[in-house]
Write a protein that binds this DNA or RNA. Structure first.
Lengths: 229, 229
DNA sequence: CTTGAATTTGACGATTATGTTACGAAATGC
DNA sequence: GCATTTCGTAACATAATCGTCAAATTCAAG
């Protein structure tokens, strides 16, 4: 679970400094001193994050970034761009080309590690979502990307609430979700409505998906609902 | 079971406002007006949640947070950081240092109490979840996640009360539970029914799980019941 | 073996949780 | 800005579950 970070930087001292601080934070570090090597390493090792100097021999940071974002394998790896003071004009360009953050040299080690941690956390969450974009139960298929549902190839029109409810139940197939849990996760914790609201939506959902699948949403009396395993 | 919340905030008005709203929600409130006192109170009283202003005299929110997370006794207490608008830069830092949520002033009382409730719930679940979710005795298997019970792969339909009763006995395999204990733990301490009620449910339970397993629930005359080791 | 207490058992009415439908308000789309 | 959809709530219907009671049975002690 320890994260790997690729650092592409031609100035040896800075490279080592960064490496040292990242290792202190228990990250695994890969190093490259020019753009070509950096790009190759990135594709081979698929690190969890890439720190990229803007000015590089061989192939500069912008080009590498562009290349990374074009490659399906690497397009989702977050990139932090390092720029020297005075290169500020290029900031926007760098971000537009797909970099996810930047830092202006000189930066403090503390700033670096905080930034890295923050970005990794952000992308962790991101990558959790796309994990399962599609859920299935028998011939019922739901696509979390497009918020659509099919039963035997035929699309079923669900409202957003119904969709989320179905998704939440299906995602936890076999586990009972209490009404409170469902309210929290489908409606959001800021909603303070009645638990009966859940019932009503369960009812509508069941109606729309037809008897066979309606029965798959089991009522656990006194607790809540559960999608049949 | 009423939760205690420590509020560390130097502005008297805000402190009282927060206190008032939390009390309205039946929380027990501790107050501190500077960081040092806050930290001491936290360690002494071990509240269930700490609301921490970022800007404080004596010792600022970040330092306190850091200190709390270093102390084994307090490291698992959730912290909500309060930041004034414009201090947003510190958000990440605050969260990185272990705060579990933050709120930007000014916030509405409603937002506060909802947030508090959500966080407490989240942490409640955390400490409950890692418990064993499955119990076994011979070919009898119970799954606390789905509230289901099987005997030799065949599912047995139990009501929630029966399920909890079985679970309670099985969890304390070999130990005798008095009827009063069972009433407390299965029905809840607020229930004031007769001990005979337990008998009836034991009866129904025994009936449903079949002779072999019925016999595993032993009657300890004059005391209560015990699940055979 | 007798006896009283404890437990088992079955029945029943009460209670409670959920299903169902309807309706007005809010959100959404055109 | 109007028409339509979607939502949350309430009210009622239905069904599952419960707690209590009382009679039957078992148990243990003498």
């Amino acid at each position: 679970m320890t994260k790997t970070i690729l650092v592409v930087e031609d100035e040896k001292d800075i490279l080592n400094l960064i490496e040292w601080h990242l290792r202190a934070e228990e990250y695994s570090v890969l190093k490259a001193k020019d753009g070509i090597k950096g790009l190759n390493l990135a594709v081979e090792q698929l690190p969890d994050l890439i720190i990229l100097d803007l000015m590089l021999p061989g192939m500069d940071g912008l080009q590498i970034c562009k290349a990374l974002k074009k490659n399906q394998k690497t397009e989702n790896i977050p990139v932090v761009m390092l720029t020297a003071k005075g290169e500020e004009v290029d900031r926007i360009v760098g971000l537009e080309l797909g970099a996810d953050d930047y830092m202006v040299k000189p930066f403090s080690p503390r700033e670096l590690t905080l930034r890295v941690r923050a970005i990794l956390k952000r992308f962790d969450n991101k990558s959790e979502a796309p994990e399962a974009v599609k859920l299935k139960y028998k011939d019922l298929l739901i696509d979390m990307d497009s918020y659509r549902v099919w039963i035997q190839e035929k699309e079923i029109a669900l409202t957003v609430t119904e969709f989320k409810l179905l998704q939440e139940l299906l995602q936890n197939k076999g586990r009972v979700r209490t009404r409170d849990q469902l309210l929290d996760r489908v409606w959001g914790y800021q909603f303070d409505g009645y638990a009966r609201t859940v019932d009503t939506h369960i009812r509508r959902l069941r109606q729309k998906i037809g008897e066979e699948y309606a029965d798959a949403i089991e009522t656990v009396r006194g607790i809540g609902y559960r999608f049949k395993e």
